[in-house]
Design a protein around this nucleic acid. Sequence first.
DNA 1: GTATTTTTGTCACCTAGGTGACAAAAATAA
DNA 2: TTATTTTTGTCACCTAGGTGACAAAAATAC
Lengths: 237, 237
Amino acid sequence: MARTPVLNVKTIRRLKAFPWASDRQIEQLLDQMTLHHIEKRTIVFNEGVPSDSVYLLISGVVKLSLPTPDEEHVLVSLIAPGELFGITSLMPGMCRAFRSEAFSDCWISSVRPDVFVTTLLDIPFAEFSSMMEGTVGRWFALLYRYTRFQSSNLHQKLALALLELAQKFGVQDARGMMLTLQLTHEDLADLVGASRQKVTEHMKELERQQFLLRDGRKLIVRPAGMREAAGLASEEK
Amino acid sequence: MARTPVLNVKTIRRLKAFPWASDRQIEQLLDQMTLHHIEKRTIVFNEGVPSDSVYLLISGVVKLSLPTPDEEHVLVSLIAPGELFGITSLMPGMCRAFRSEAFSDCWISSVRPDVFVTTLLDIPFAEFSSMMEGTVGRWFALLYRYTRFQSSNLHQKLALALLELAQKFGVQDARGMMLTLQLTHEDLADLVGASRQKVTEHMKELERQQFLLRDGRKLIVRPAGMREAAGLASEEK
DNA sequence: GTATTTTTGTCACCTAGGTGACAAAAATAA
DNA sequence: TTATTTTTGTCACCTAGGTGACAAAAATAC
């Protein structure tokens, strides 16, 4: 069972890994990849650490998850053989967003992201990764938000959403970040997937807690307090 | 207010749009982009249609949403000036996953994806888009799943998760797709963000409905029925 | 200005799903 | 084999949040 798998163009094709790549490119790439046997339950990488490799799952199942403060964790996705993972390494300076661990015994092949890109694409890594960041970086952030949502209650979701809005649409103000956006409670409800009435209640509550102020029609978010309400404590971004 | 904005390198820099691009590249790109004024509530593109443009929001707010069968809709994200959107067009043959509409009056600049890529990156569009699909395509699918989850109940989430698992880890069987994966109800519960007990209940229910069969320890998913249970009816993928 | 529509605030009530507890059944270890 | 651990099944009960209804307040139209 733990017999080292043979990696050649044929096996890569069978895995449907890089269907667009030429045989030559795959051969070149294989030369630069290193194969690892990972035992069930072993962590491949932890969330928050710098991303320095891209991985290709050869056999087994890898689990991607997001640990939450209170010892819980959200299972984000299960990865099947032939899938590439650890792609935060394709964006400049980005740390791993999720934890990945072997869900069963696995064979995994890894490669440095710059080697991966230059082998398959004939442009400098920096160019590709900036482009990636500029185009899909935000989508990735969105995915991250959704996974976080999974383990939050309405109050936290609302706080999280307001923080994001403040970041995107806020202007600095003596009292905090003022939203340059006219949002009804209905809009907010859609955004967090809740009912309008409950949003109204929780908005009141956030105001009572002084995490949210109002200047006429404008909302002012106090990032520090709002973080607390979102259950982020002293995290970044 | 509806005065046509001036688009030059300076304004692009102010919007922090393509921070990595050179002035020359930006100039070239601007030459090929067309500016549109979009009135509040107007749809920029609908979900499901072929993706033939990338958009840059110049001013205003754009809303991304996912309409659900029962006249509801999930608000996926609000887009701020300087953000690029409509990036499904950067992946080959992909249709728009979400609907986008002007949340306020907007100025939007659009460009053909191939022009966008070749101007900024000096490689053929096809190469870049295959690479994108191979690396971030699945992450995009994941985002799509999470947004769908938002408007589903546990029964539907479970069905959706089982369908995805069948697709990733299933092998064809006379009776349906047999999962080559040993999952406990606990794992499933993590995957859909629910409690183990309720997952047990709903699994029973799916078996009763004959959408899910069991051959000893192995699960067999019947895609047609499972689709129905997931509330997908006759949709693709 | 007044009339009309949209948005907010606040009820009381209801339901999906969380929680704890425990027994039966299966899997695994010894 | 028997002992032990993991997984499943099924309770009864509880809570977060959905729903409908309606009035006050704001915004907008006329």
